[in-house]
Design a protein around this nucleic acid. Structure first.
Length: 478
RNA sequence: GGCGACGUAGCCAAGUGGAUAAGGCAGGGGUCUGCAAAACCCCCAUCAUCGGUUCGAACCCGAUCGUCGCCUCCA
């Protein structure tokens, strides 16, 4: 079955066909690094991480570019987030940017988000932006006004094709409240004249200034991925005006065909509302990690479809964490049993079971990266495996099952660490736990259940859970 | 006001025209166990409301109610 992707530009799912056979060039709008990353960033970059991972699983050679926005952007209010952040933290702008860039990557690492192949910074591409803007001016799609340069939206007929938004002619004749040199309110800035107090500034043919918000993505994606490239991703809230403007300025300079597939992911909600500092429901990833395992957060994100909104509550995250633990339980049991299993090849039944799971997993992923269905396939495999576990599986069987989990839950979904639980514990702890388990076994044999339970409860209070099975007692740290 | 998305069990969340509406969490009943946990088995929804289209709709169309997003920076 072929991979299909929902293309925002076409408003429908389409069979994915890369520009270059076997290769995928993909760009995703990155963060503005002026503050700590929050759960919303987590959702977005986990969503796109899955796309990259699955494309690689399918055998594509993926080149993944995600920018770092380190230029303060023009706000009509005159504020600039990076400058504000720098003032707040008593840092130079570039120092602030460096600080938060590092923290961003550290957070993403914990969520097991693979790093992009290229993380270009806006400030490193000013010359390319100047060139691009000049090309737009030369082509009659941009104009200079008092040291600033604006894209002339009226010069580009297909403006609005992504967002389905038509320009409101009603405003054209009215007086623009904002002190602007724009000819039309919908025109957007490519280059902005710097006020004297603006620290981040560069020389340009039009005077000292700084780049507009949309131009960096167009310039950097094209520079590293060519034009056209395959996939351009970002949050839905960027569809307009950001992505719409990107398309216009890209195609006005280089002709139709900027990015083939536009992929937008849904927002993360906190108890039904968008996360906002002003709403008091802002949760940084760092804070979330104190309460939940990063893997559980990742798993929670993947249990809903990337395109939909995801409503987060404490209960729903707790529920996801318990579900993930169920999957881990199976993998642990498989690995434990491997230590004492008889040699032998994987049986046809086992291979059949894995085939079924893999087919269901791929069918769901092929349908616009349906991670919820893929996870359901893993739960089905988990149950089937648990049933088989008591039937004398061979080393071949167990290795095949473990391999499937590693591939699907580990490589593709990224929710299965290489090591689970027990082996993480320091050697001394492991020795002590084993010793206590042995003692408890003797107590039980002597039918001294009170003392045996005391040992179990005591370990439980320390976070060590015991499970009695037909082949002895196993333990996990949770 | 304009554009758009959504409303599926106690909760989270798939499914978007066809035979019993995925999966997880929680809950109930069992099996196993000294007990517990884990695991396994069984049970738990007619898809916001109303009206259409169709042999057939949660899935298509219309209306209504409700929630949310974008239209200004935002992942």
């Amino acid at each position: 079955m072929a991979l299909s992707i929902y293309n925002s530009l076409a408003r429908e799912k389409q069979i994915f066909e890369p520009v270059r056979p076997g290769r995928v060039h993909m760009y995703v709008c990155g963060p503005t690094v002026y503050n700590d990353a929050h759960l919303g960033h987590g959702k977005t970059y986990v969503n796109f991480d899955i796309i990259v991972r699955y494309l690689r699983y399918l055998g594509f050679q993926v080149l993944y570019v995600q920018n770092i926005t380190d230029v303060g952007h023009i706000l009509d209010s005159g504020e600039d987030r990076i400058l504000k952040g720098a003032q707040r933290e008593q840092m130079q702008p570039m120092q602030l940017v460096e600080h938060y860039t590092r923290r961003y990557f550290a957070d993403m690492d914990r969520l097991n988000v693979l790093r992009p192949d290229i993380s270009p910074r806006a400030t490193g591409h000013i010359p390319e932006m100047l060139e691009w803007i000049q090309r737009l001016i030369d082509g009659g799609h941009a104009y200079v006004a008092d040291g600033s340069v604006y894209f002339d939206v009226s010069s580009w007929e297909s403006y609005g094709k992504l967002s389905g938004r038509r320009l409101e002619e009603a405003q054209t004749g009215t007086r623009v409240q904002l002190a602007d040199d724009k000819r039309a309110p919908e025109d957007f800035a490519l280059w902005r004249k710097a006020e004297p107090e603006h620290i981040m500034r560069w020389n340009s043919p039009w005077g000292v200034g700084y780049p507009g918000w949309h131009i960096e993505c167009t310039v950097m994606s094209t520079k590293y991925l060519g034009q056209p490239f395959d996939i351009h991703g970002g949050g839905v809230e960027n569809k307009f005006p950001h992505h719409e403007s990107e398309i216009a300025q890209a195609e006005a300079a280089h002709g139709e065909g900027y990015a083939r597939y536009w992929v937008h992911n849904g927002m993360l909600m906190i108890r039904g509302e968008e996360m906002h500092k002003s709403l008091g429901n802002f949760i940084s990833l760092e804070a979330a990690f104190e309460r939940w395992d990063p893997m559980a957060i990742r798993f929670f994100i993947l249990q809903s479809h990337y395109r939909g909104p995801l409503d987060l509550t404490e209960e729903s995250l707790d529920a996801a964490a318990r579900g993930l633990e169920r999957l881990y339980g199976t993998v642990r049991a498989v690995r434990r049993q491997l230590e004492s299993a008889p040699a032998g090849e994987a049986s046809p039944e086992t291979l059949q079971m894995l085939d079924t799971a893999r087919n269901a997993f791929e069918a769901s992923m092929d349908d616009d990266f349906g991670t919820p269905g893929a996870i359901a396939a893993l739960f089905d495999l988990s149950r089937a495996t648990n049933v088989q576990l008591g039937t004398g599986l061979t080393q071949g069987d167990l290795m095949a099952i473990d391999g499937a989990f590693k591939r699907l839950a580990g490589d593709v979904l990224g929710v299965l660490p290489d090591e689970l639980g027990e082996s993480d514990a320091p050697e001394l702890s492991r020795g002590l736990i084993e010793l206590l388990i042995e003692t408890r076994r003797n107590l039980r044999a002597a039918r001294a259940f009170d003392l045996a339970d005391q040992v179990r409860d005591g370990l439980g209070a320390l976070g060590v859970q015991l499970q009695d099975g037909p082949e002895g007692t196993s333990w996990t740290i949770g």
